[in-house]
Design a protein around this nucleic acid. Structure first.
Lengths: 215, 215
DNA sequence: CGTGGTGTTGATTACTTTCAAGATGTGTGG
DNA sequence: CCACACATCTTGAAAGTAATCAACACCACG
């Protein structure tokens, strides 16, 4: 059993000046915060009350078991939003994977954001439920295939896919160990389905085959 | 690999007259429908547009892989609500596990239910993400323990817990085979943690031990 | 150009699945 | 109300997949 120990960097992010209101108009302000790689955005148990939109970089949302086992429930890439909770408390941890810029939308106490939040929550719910199918019923190679296809689609469907996260992050997202993730990458490479350009980027050579494996 | 083949009962439910408006007031009507055991409430790909509240009985929400592998993402017991989707299409199947009464809230096209739906969606999201931790990082005995604790809490925290669903349903919810579920039940019984009163009800003898195993 | 962290590969172990058989339970018809 | 029959559940043995343990390679950084 491998255990995850968070490197407690948690530098306080230095904020830049607020930017354009964008999609959300009625909140108090939308400053951009910069988080260095590995730094904490919020922790389980902390008081919630803001939305976060990734400007650049990547974020992992995760939960820990008492003995340190970690499950990443979601990665959020540029443009994606996270941070909403069912009650006033964060139920998960959020960390910057790499140097990351995050736009913070602090929710005004009285303001009603239901209209904006509901679609995001429902999208997240659907994604989480689909991920349940992967973790509950797919084997290692199917999990990695589904992951790469998903990541590729979210990056615009190009052949080349960037992996902003480590093998450990991938493992903790897919419910696998880093060794298994590594072995599956090698197997996919040997089959000619993908090419490993470098540690953090792969090229999907046989999109159809990869797609078929992940479903 | 075991595969799930749905028994295509799908009797059209015979509706009773609408009941009290309850929590939702602005919809067109709230008839109660009766679904016999195993019948379909809605299917993946169908047009969505209603909320469902379980009056009695139990419902399973699931998804299938192409080869028949099934993942149940949630069970819904009396009082619980399900059926909302991110877009106009159902992404999952919903079936009555036993004879089940469901109150249907057809969402009027123009009506805005954001306020009522958002808390439900967020609750569901949190539950799904917590279930990801179970499927991704816990072993068989931990999964079953977490399941029994959860079910016990949802049934009022009594020592005796009713299992409205079969071993296959439990397996497909926990990402295990029916044999493994059965073996874990036996192990928990042998350890004196639970008692198997009959196939569909167990007694939690050592609540603290069971709780500790599932987290 | 070292050095620590990250990733890969190999050997072994452990857990869950698969395959198989038998037991138990439930529902139906006599 | 009992007996049979089918479905569900349990238990056992063997096989398979991923985890663990261990060593080495690679890469990025100072």
């Amino acid at each position: 059993m491998h255990a995850y120990t968070a490197s407690r960097i948690s530098l306080s992010p230095h904020s830049a000046q607020p930017s354009l209101p964008a999609a959300f108009g009625s909140e108090t302000q939308q400053p951009i915060s910069f988080f260095p790689a590995g730094s904490e955005i919020y922790a389980q148990g902390e008081r919630a009350g803001a939305l976060y939109q990734v400007e650049f970089g990547a974020v992992r949302i995760y939960r820990l078991l008492a003995d340190g086992r970690r499950q990443i429930s979601a990665f959020h890439l540029a443009g994606e939003t996270f941070g909403f909770e069912a009650d006033a408390t964060h139920h998960f941890f959020a960390e910057a994977i790499n140097a990351t810029g995050v736009r913070t939308f602090r929710l005004a106490a009285g303001a009603d954001m239901s209209h904006q939040l509901l679609p995001l929550a429902l999208k997240g719910l659907t994604r989480a439920q689909e991920h349940l199918l992967v973790l509950g019923r797919q084997n290692a190679i199917e999990r990695v295939a589904a992951f790469l296809v998903d990541l590729g689609e979210r990056q615009g469907g190009l052949r080349q896919v960037e992996l902003p996260m480590s093998r450990m992050d991938i493992g903790d997202y897919l419910g696998l160990t880093i060794e298994t993730v590594s072995r599956v990458f090698t197997r996919l490479k040997d089959k000619g389905v993908i090419r490993l350009l470098n540690l953090r980027s792969i090229e999907i050579v046989k999109q159809d085959v990869l797609q078929a494996m992940g479903e």
